[in-house]
Write a protein that binds this DNA or RNA. Sequence first.
DNA 1: CACTATAGTGAACTATGCTTCCGATTGTCA
DNA 2: TGACAATCGGAAGCATAGTTCACTATAGTG
Lengths: 192, 192
Amino acid sequence: MADTVIHTERPLRADARRNRERILESARAVFAEYGANAQIDDVARQAGVGVGTVYRHFETKEALLVELLREKFRLFAARAREALEQHGEPFAVLEDLLRRNAQTAASDAAVQHALAGAGENIWMQAEAEQQELVAVTGLLIARARRAGTIRQDVEANDIAMLMCGLCSTMGGKPGFDWRRHLDLVIDMLRAR
Amino acid sequence: MADTVIHTERPLRADARRNRERILESARAVFAEYGANAQIDDVARQAGVGVGTVYRHFETKEALLVELLREKFRLFAARAREALEQHGEPFAVLEDLLRRNAQTAASDAAVQHALAGAGENIWMQAEAEQQELVAVTGLLIARARRAGTIRQDVEANDIAMLMCGLCSTMGGKPGFDWRRHLDLVIDMLRAR
DNA sequence: CACTATAGTGAACTATGCTTCCGATTGTCA
DNA sequence: TGACAATCGGAAGCATAGTTCACTATAGTG
């Protein structure tokens, strides 16, 4: 709503388009490494532009973070759609998807932050993309359910919650090994 | 370590003792309701003391949050020890414990925040208490394992991670129902 | 009851980091 | 190429919230 730009969008000037892309690129890197606490100034510096330029392209810092989270959800959804094309054993396909997504989340502190619970606001603003992801995941689950290889009572939102939970263990708390934990969780999802 | 006060502690003056208790009480309430973002000023106001007084008792805001988290871990550990005394079916005892702890976490936004991944620093400073909790949980698991009612490959840290994960789903993200999720998780822990 | 060490108070200070603003630049188009 | 609108830059402006400190109040003690 707040970002549904209406006024007929004229094409961006060449330099503006270039800068917008650079800013997103740097933001991806900076927030991935330092989490949502990284500063706009850092993003700007890394992109080789002034802060003002960042603000020309993104209303607020939050808007930038939201855009990045949306990107990630879109990526996850795209992967899920791909998975849907595959003809292997449905549970195995799902498992592979989860592992890949976990790996992606593990290398992005901002995503962990958003999924792990803090960053409510940001999550909310990416709801459409998240819903889309849940929808596709639902199809994958349905298929595995039909094959009888996944617990019958698992729903798409459970997968979402488990992945969010997994993200909350990625921060490096001593004794916590998310890979091991993911192995367990995946095995727990299997049909008995 | 950082808080192992050495200089022979003389007993607090009566008003100081009273205020310290009031501050903790208010902090529990305020942080539980508004999370770790609540302000020291709010804690002070609620406690009916000046900010300076809060700082007389707690070096920093973080120190206060750490103390509260420690309290929670001590509570969880105490419950776990109680559970160890009980003679019911070991898995059922563990299940009951998890449900009660989840409920406690659900009513405390600061705990959710700390467990869900943000608040690394705070978590680290409560490590001793957390380790103690993991240790006792280990005993409960061992018992259930002997009874053959829990998955043989579950470890105490897995329970910890699952609970942290659960906390990350409590923030009220649309479509996420932590109670339902807990039911699933608990059932997934059962021996096949 | 007087004295003093301990404790309390809260306005002021400070640090951090997001956001704005306006003069300088630069693409675009006639 | 000239003109101008779009864009950029980054110092300065603000807002927030944690923390300090100089002064006042009071519990404990002889």
